[in-house]
Design a protein around this nucleic acid. Sequence first.
DNA 1: TTGATTTTGATCGAATTTGGTTGTAATATA
DNA 2: TATATTACAACCAAATTCGATCAAAATCAA
Lengths: 250, 250
Amino acid sequence: MLTEERQQIILQQLKIHNIVKLHDLISLTGASASTLRRDLKDLESCHKLLRIHGGAQNVISLHEEPALSQKATINLDGKKAIGKAAANLVQNDEVIFLDSGTTIQFMIPYLIEHKNLLVVTNSVDNASMLADYNIDTFLPGGRLKSATKALVGSTMIQTLESYHFDRAFIGANGFSVDSGCTTPDPEESMIKKLAIEQSNLAFVLSDSSKYCQVSFSKFADLKDITLITSGLSDKELELLNKKTRVMEVN
Amino acid sequence: MLTEERQQIILQQLKIHNIVKLHDLISLTGASASTLRRDLKDLESCHKLLRIHGGAQNVISLHEEPALSQKATINLDGKKAIGKAAANLVQNDEVIFLDSGTTIQFMIPYLIEHKNLLVVTNSVDNASMLADYNIDTFLPGGRLKSATKALVGSTMIQTLESYHFDRAFIGANGFSVDSGCTTPDPEESMIKKLAIEQSNLAFVLSDSSKYCQVSFSKFADLKDITLITSGLSDKELELLNKKTRVMEVN
DNA sequence: TTGATTTTGATCGAATTTGGTTGTAATATA
DNA sequence: TATATTACAACCAAATTCGATCAAAATCAA
């Protein structure tokens, strides 16, 4: 059995079961524990799975959005760096759109450097933080999604259609060369898509853990946005650079 | 069974039942009590659940009061009682408006008793809390006021004009027989006024410390609203009762 | 074929996980 | 209230899994 075959089997099992045990893989492939450990190690290093004691699990299960508190602490330094870099792109007097999500939230402390900004956001949490920083903020109306505290729905869409932004900063649960930028919830996906359309320049902020992740709903092709990310390898960057503009921070 | 599997089962059970007993988890996973205790400990330390004697419960346990961080501790018992009384007025299937302000916020934990509510609010903080309690919430668009984290402005007004509420619950910085209900900010005052107009029944929530206080901008005559208050003397109540309906709680 | 490179499987000590035991604390019952 | 029951944290020893290493096997190149 070839290495490629084994790894396909592993990923396939993961898709089905969300979790695989090393033991099962041994009987499934006939390979030794050592070999399969090596496979898992390889697959983990390109973010295709997450190793756990006794096996491996999906990096994210498609229909599960981890609650904010859980997500918030992951890859903190990376998010901070991304947030700072993104905020530095903003110019005085601009109107910008801020998506929901913790990565985007890290931009806010750095936004106070800029004068006379107007921020439009669909995130209740971001709005609260923007108010703390005394940044002029506008919320389009919408229905509130409990899980992410983002505003969605037809009202939001109608409102956004009548706005135009200098820049939009969007979060993503996954991005890949083939599938573009994706997120679990179709309604939020539609907001992201629309915000990108209504902007002169659109940026997707996402750390390396989201690379090669595909979530349910696609909201942008890589060619239509500029990616701001951190923690990617040179090889991965090279590959991405063929499809989009990438800002690697740190 | 892998650690990760067990923990997923635990969280899944919590989502369904809001509470799990250690005993049930033992029969559900086949793992020992020690192991499951460890799992609960781990999950608690990353804030995915709250341990209780004999098992665990969701972090946001529905029937429990939120920890309120701020200086909102003034007259806490009074506000709680007012919030509870106000929430009890609400009926299933109603559309209600919630104003901004801490007193109003105390209603939210008690609102979960009612089924199929739709809450409209202009307060970002209330919205966030409503999301925590999984209550259907709609935010009309508007400009965000930093000081109070309330949404104001023409967009908000236009939106509210097209809505109609079964009940509106409004906060006030002052109320008196002569000057009616008042609040410092004219823009917020306009929102309150409008919300009252658009409702079948309007309630102003305000504790006794606001009695005979007059703030800059008036948004309602006492005759147009029902006052929900606490801590007033019999004499004061008698006086007020001539001008308006008063619910004294506690 | 020969020699170099890669892949594989086995081994072993270290690290992790697990289930049971113990004494203590919390809860239930009388 | 006093007592019995149950759940708890802390600890330990057994079992499992892990990572590192190395030699055998397979693959490749000339």
